[in-house]
Design a binder for these strands. Structure first.
Length: 721
RNA sequence: GGGAGAUUAGCUCAGUUGGUAGAGCAACUCGUUUACACCGAGAAGGUCAGAGGUUCGAGUCCUCUAUCUCCCACCA
């Protein structure tokens, strides 16, 4: 029976969205276990067809932003489409504790309250961040629901759940056994503010002009922007073929006057020095420079720490000890100048300095004992998998970037000196600093020197555990989901975390299962404001997807996010565009009302197309089916930006503007009326089905009024094929 | 230093395998005709950055130039 009362009022998304979502939830259809058996497609081998997506777990440390709204929309469209196409479709939601990211957010909270993380014990800090994260997590889940995500909440996983930790620990141990893990004293990117090491990906480079100083160093001239590191410089390096310095030999010792009096310097000849840069001579500071460290290691030179973890000079700096770099630099230059050792200053020197990607404080390279994963073999396997099409990257430009990064990969530092994360299960020798993997917490003495050991206090880089996300969410290695849904169908996420996350998931997935964790990779770009500007709080141009959704409706927001927004490229979100799709929702609503008013004598959907007898009606019906076929093919090939545009255009400018306009006169004038009515109803029904993945709320609401007696919810209704 | 990409209507962007350019917004004219003014009808707007080339045919493929954007990276 058709209920048309509700169509007397304009469409109001706020009134229906919550109840529709509740209806879906109580139907159980978000969970593929509840999929009606008779609808499931089987492949040639008689196996059920499945479709699966692992949701990139949003960081549980704030509200959802436009990027989240975009990925929810894209993934929900794919899931709904495949669900309607007879596949058991699983979308696994999650929440990310987001280690360093969240700790940084929480430190800002502390700062506002005038507190410091360093005044808290590790346990206290962990507890506070956990409470903060869990409350954000439930808030965030509500927002994902508001966006219409048809994910299976019964399978939701948090990145600190026991199942995750267990898998991560086993992987850590396996890497150790396979000799892909080592603990090494190496130069790491050290952030003096956050007091932790960072991976290369967590550093940015900013262009800066700094004074470049030339100093007299014995018979040589050396150049530097960092005089404060030069206290311990007792090696002077030049290219072996540099004619200017041929009188000096490798290993030769000379005495030079330096900052705090005369020192003995040793000549090193090494090809890494560029004779064309400056004077072609440099001194090295191995503790605080990667290049210098490599040279020092090669020739087995002494390595001395000059600057501590807080960015202050150590006792080696004599009268400057305890001073910060910033304060000390001009004073050191002054002293060198007064000793007649300053030759000149170039104030126009432009270079790039590494900074912490969160606080922009200059990275202070330090030598630290950290856990590293050898990446070369893992990356080779990933590239081979790509070559052999074990998975594909749908956007060509990203495939190129991926290959480039993979072939230049470096070992991965997975240790972080923060409390908010998964503790590294290892023991460290107090005497020799040797690290031993110890999942069961049973090792009490160092296997190398038998000395006492302590627990490693570091935690894993978040991305080490996230890198195993498709495994843990499908319950690797023995869960039935793992058998059924791994490898997943598609990984849809932001192009900005291609290296952070996608690359690591591929490498770890291949390492553990010999299968890439997903078949297709769909990457979306950044969501910018209406004029292509990056959204930022300071610019005040942040568009909250939840506000937009409340104002224009979730369906309109979803359309605004995807129509004509091509995969892989940055996209602009213009509220005016969303408004246009709010009008579209209203158009759909009114068109439905009109069609129902003129066709009330039809109540069973099954008879619709059978009553199309007029030959021109048949033709437009066939044309509508052809259009749907085209749209279907676009969705199957991830061209959602085209599919959404086509369904919009067809509904409005063909179905409404032309077909309804023409047929309504025939109905009024009683010319082949039944065929005209049947045509309108049949096309409307098919279009509502086709629109559903894009605009799930309004279509489900309309479906209630147009479905046949034997039809279930639209979410589970068969696609038009 | 290395890499990837962009340049199409006033603005923001589509254009899938090469076949005489499309959408939304803005602006213009007309229209309240009984689904819808959150509307309809109509008109306007582009030598597809520039120059060469391949082709019967190029926004689409190739080369170069200009401008812009992003990513990666241990040159003192």
């Amino acid at each position: 029976m058709i209920n048309q009362d509700k169509f007397q009022k304009p469409y109001n998304p706020q009134e229906i969205e919550n109840s529709i979502y509740e209806k879906w939830l109580s139907s159980g259809y978000f969970n593929p276990d509840n999929y009606p058996e008779n609808k499931i497609k089987k492949n040639k081998e008689g196996q059920e067809e499945t479709f699966s997506i692992v949701m990139p777990p949003p960081n549980a440390n704030g509200s959802l932003h436009a990027g989240h709204a975009l990925f929810v929309t894209l993934q929900d469209i794919l899931i709904r489409f495949n669900r309607m196409n007879g596949k058991r479709s699983l979308w696994i939601p999650g929440a990310d504790h987001a280690g360093f990211e969240t700790q940084v957010v929480y430190e800002k909270v502390l700062e506002k309250e005038g507190r410091s993380r360093f005044a808290l014990s590790k346990e206290e800090l962990y507890k506070e961040i956990l409470d903060f994260t869990l409350s954000n997590k439930s808030y965030m889940e509500g927002q994902i629901r508001q966006l219409g995500a048809s994910c299976d909440w019964s399978r939701e996983l948090f990145t600190l759940d026991d199942r995750v930790i267990k898998t991560v620990y086993n992987t850590f141990e396996k890497l150790d056994k396979d000799k892909l893990l080592y603990r090494g004293k190496r130069i790491v990117n050290w952030c003096p503010k956050h007091q932790t090491s960072l991976s290369n990906l967590e550093t940015n480079y900013i262009k800066r002009k700094d004074p470049f100083y030339y100093f007299k160093y014995g018979p040589f001239t050396i150049g530097t922007v960092r005089p404060e590191t030069k206290f311990g410089d007792k090696y002077v390096v030049m290219h072996p073929d540099d004619e200017r310095y041929k009188e000096y030999t490798h290993g030769q010792k000379i005495t030079v006057e330096w900052i705090n009096g005369p020192i003995e310097a040793t000549i090193i000849k090494d090809k890494s020095v560029d004779p064309k840069f400056g004077s072609g001579v440099m001194t090295i500071t191995p503790w605080h420079s990667t290049v210098d460290f490599d040279i020092a290691k090669q020739y087995d030179l002494d390595i001395e720490q000059i600057i501590d973890e807080r960015g202050k000079l150590l006792p080696i700096a004599n009268e400057f000890a305890g001073m910060s770099i910033k304060d000390a630099r001009p004073k050191i230059v002054e002293k060198l100048d007064s000793k007649g050792l300053l030759i000149k200053v170039d104030n126009e020197y432009e270079h790039e300095v590494a900074v912490c990607y969160k606080c922009e404080r200059e990275i202070e390279p330090q030598i630290k004992a950290q856990w590293f994963i050898k990446m070369k073999g893992l990356s080779d396997r990933a590239v081979k998998a790509l070559d052999e099409k074990e998975f594909r990257i749908l956007t060509e430009q990203h495939e190129k970037v991926f290959r480039h990064w993979m072939s230049n990969i470096q070992d991965w530092n997975i240790s972080r000196q923060i409390v908010w994360g998964i503790p590294i299960p290892a023991k460290i020798c107090i005497a020799c600093d040797h690290g031993t993997v110890d999942l069961k917490d049973e090792i009490t003495s160092c296997p190398v020197c038998s000395s006492e050991v302590k627990r490693d206090t570091d935690t894993f880089d978040t991305w080490f555990s996230s890198g195993q996300w498709p495994l843990v969410t499908t319950d690797y290695p023995n869960g039935s989901d793992f058998q059924k849904y791994y490898p997943t169908s598609v990984m849809e996420t932001g192009a900005d975390i291609l290296f952070f996350w996608v690359a690591r998931m591929i490498m770890l997935g291949l390492y553990l299962t010999d299968q890439a964790p997903f078949k297709d990779i769909y990457l979306h770009g950044l969501v910018r404001d209406a004029h292509g500007k990056k959204m930022s709080k300071s610019k005040g141009n942040v568009i909250s997807p939840l506000e937009i959704s409340e104002k224009y409706g979730t369906d309109a927001l979803r359309m605004g996010l995807i129509v004509n927004n091509a995969p892989g490229v940055d996209m602009n979100l213009d509220p005016k565009k969303v408004e246009a799709y709010k009008k579209f929702a209203n158009k759909i609503w009114n068109a439905t009302r009109f069609v129902l008013e003129r066709t009330l004598n039809y109540s069973s959907s099954l008879t619709y197309s059978q009553n199309i007898t007029n030959s021109s009606d048949k033709k437009i019906y066939e044309e509508s089916l052809a259009k749907i076929k085209e749209i279907t093919s676009d969705i199957e090939n991830y061209r959602l930006h085209l599919a959404s545009e086509k369904i919009y255009d067809y509904f409005w400018h063909q179905f409404c503007d032309i077909h309804i306009e023409n047929l309504k006169n025939r109905i009024l004038n009683n010319e082949d009326k039944i065929s005209a009515q049947a045509t309108l109803l049949a096309i409307l029904r098919n279009l509502i089905i086709t629109l559903h993945p894009f605009m799930p709320f309004i279509t489900e609401e309309i479906w209630e009024s147009i479905k046949g007696e034997n039809d279930d919810l639209l979410i589970i209704t068969d696609w038009i094929n």
